[in-house]
Design a protein around this nucleic acid. Structure first.
Lengths: 187, 187
DNA sequence: AAACAACTTGAACGCTCATTCAAAACATGA
DNA sequence: TCATGTTTTGAATGAGCGTTCAAGTTGTTT
């Protein structure tokens, strides 16, 4: 080994922000050079090409999301209470003005002509769903846990899209309570 | 008037297919020339530019969707039964191999940096939601109808995303039944 | 049949895109 | 200190992008 490379985590973080906000196709390499501070050669040596950088950025985001979710479930509260908290925070996110959905959801929809990338994203989303299934399986029969987890995922995806054109936090919460009545909503 | 223009509906139909499948940014004008059979000049005279064509294509799709929905509700069945049928057909759609979500949903997520276009799409989606609200308001108090309609929209959006990585029709239906228990699901 | 207006044609334009690569800078081992 | 291998630099490249426009075609009016 000789000279150590640039801070890979930092670069991935910056690239992820841009890809997430602007989308894969609308993000130019020149914009990525600017935001990361890297020159073309460095990026191409380290990641191969635009798609390589994108895939690694997806992985970076997905791993962080999964870690965060796992950590949440390590809290000393009931599984269902934790899920309520999570949904609450998703609603909070969704009404932010610079909200740009979930990076995985957005990319999934944008890149359905690239089967390989699509497949990766689907696996990350499935991994997230699996966490919900496992947690719910501690209090429900497996089959019921699976259906409930899927219902949660559908609601999360729905929020990710609905959040784009609604600022009304209260009615979003009401709809969640209607669609997920088996969760322990406050009051 | 002199020479009549090309068949506008036909061109919009073809352009919509391409934009829908490939996405706005990944669709090139040259590809649009090919698929529509038009030459650059014709397109630019009729639609102004790429964005103009795109906006008109969104309108074309939205109007067709809204008409279709209104027609559905003219059927001689209960509102809730009709909604069940619709959700059923959305699940059917979602498991098709060439499924590419809803054009409006997809575009909404891809183009959040273009506030004007985003606003248009949000209005179309709001118009669709309004139809559900009005129909549900014939059997529920207005406020309840609004929450229920929003819950339906969240489920539809959720399906539109979830459908990308699941082929399992039965579990999707089970999740819908769990999330929308107030609908008259068959047996 | 001539003049006019509306539409179509398609080559051409400037620009930005993703990508390349030879040269320079740098860290390490001998 | 020098040789070696790795990383960075940044100008350059060709391909493809969205768009333009002068010339050609076609239908209508007189």
């Amino acid at each position: 080994m000789s000279k150590t490379q640039f801070d890979r985590q930092d670069v991935l973080h910056k690239a992820t922000s841009l890809f997430w906000r602007v989308g894969y196709n609308a993000t130019s390499m020149q914009a990525l050079f600017k935001v990361t501070g890297l020159k073309p050669g460095s990026v191409y040596l380290a990641f191969g090409n635009k798609e390589g950088l994108f895939k690694e950025s997806l992985k970076f985001y997905a791993s962080a999301s999964i870690d965060k979710l796992n950590k949440k479930f390590k809290q000393n509260q009931s599984v269902e209470k934790i899920i309520c908290d999570l949904l609450f925070s998703f609603v909070e996110e969704a009404v932010q003005s610079e909200y740009c959905s979930c990076y995985l959801v957005k990319s999934q929809l944008e890149l359905d002509d690239q089967p390989q990338t699509k497949h990766y994203i689907a696996e990350y989303l499935a991994a997230i769903e699996k966490i919900y299934v496992e947690q719910l399986a501690t209090i429900y029969p497996v089959e019921e846990a699976q259906i409930k987890a899927m219902s949660i995922m559908i609601h999360i995806f729905g929020l990710r899209v609905y959040g784009y054109h609604t600022q009304n936090k209260q009615s979003m919460l009401s709809s969640l309570q209607l669609g997920l009545p088996w969760l322990p909503w406050p009051s």
